[in-house]
């Protein structure tokens, strides 16, 4: 009776150790803005995810860990007196590069839907994996646009998947 109870206690204790979250937590840093530069009223402006004006987010995660990338994308930039310039993002406007900062080495994905990635530390031992996400987009200044500086906030959320 005692031995049976003791064995049962051990089996119940094992799952607690297997669910531990020790190790590299996910990290995200906005490294560079999505810069449309100088725009002219009535003339659309496009920034490719491969261009120097594309936004860059640097990620850090546990090697081998699957994670979900989710963007919160603005629908417009705001400028003087609340004037707005509409923004749009297409199905290939985001890119994931397994090597952090290597903009040429990116795989396209749709920033409007969550994207699943697997962190790879690219053979650097036990170091955390570092990668980057790039984002391009389109701005459509109206013909009657008010001259001035326009901005909007882009947020990237990174979540480990079980």
């Amino acid at each position: 009776m005692w031995r049976t109870s003791g064995a049962l206690l051990m089996l119940l204790a094992l799952p607690a150790r297997a669910h531990g979250q020790a190790g590299q937590p996910p990290q995200v840093q906005g490294r560079r803005n999505l810069d449309f530069g100088v725009m002219v009223a009535g003339v659309p402006s496009v920034v490719a995810r491969t261009a120097g004006g594309a936004a860059q987010f640097d990620l850090r995660g546990r090697d081998g860990q699957r994670a979900l990338v989710t963007f919160t994308l603005p629908s417009e930039m705001l400028g003087p007196g609340g004037a707005a310039i509409p923004l749009a993002f297409g199905g290939a406007d985001a890119g994931y590069a397994e090597e952090q900062g290597n903009q040429a080495l990116q795989v396209a994905f749709d920033p409007r839907v969550p994207y699943t990635l697997t962190f790879r530390n690219r053979g650097t031992g036990n170091a955390p994996a570092r990668s980057s996400v790039y984002l391009g987009g389109r701005a459509a200044p109206p013909l009657s646009g008010v001259p001035g500086t326009y901005t909007a906030t882009i947020t990237l959320t990174l979540a480990y998947l079980p």
């Binding site: 799952p15 607690a16 669910h19 531990g20 979250q21 937590p25 996910p26 990290q27 995200v28 840093q29 906005g30 490294r31 560079r32 803005n33 999505l34 810069d35 449309f36 530069g37 100088v38 725009m39 002219v40 009223a41 402006s45 936004a55 860059q56 987010f57 640097d58 603005p74 930039m77 400028g79 310039i85 923004l87 984002l135 987009g137 701005a139 200044p141 646009g145 008010v146 001259p147 001035g148 500086t149 326009y150 901005t151 909007a152 906030t153 882009i154 947020t155 990237l156 959320t157 990174l158 979540a159 480990y160 998947l161 079980p162």
Partner: peptide, 19 residues
């Protein structure tokens, strides 16, 4: 025990509109 960790970061979309 199974709750996923998450983090977020932000960048701006910027531009200057000329006449």
């Amino acid at each position: 025990a199974a709750r996923a960790q998450d983090a977020s970061g932000a960048a701006l979309a910027t531009g200057v509109l000329q006449a």
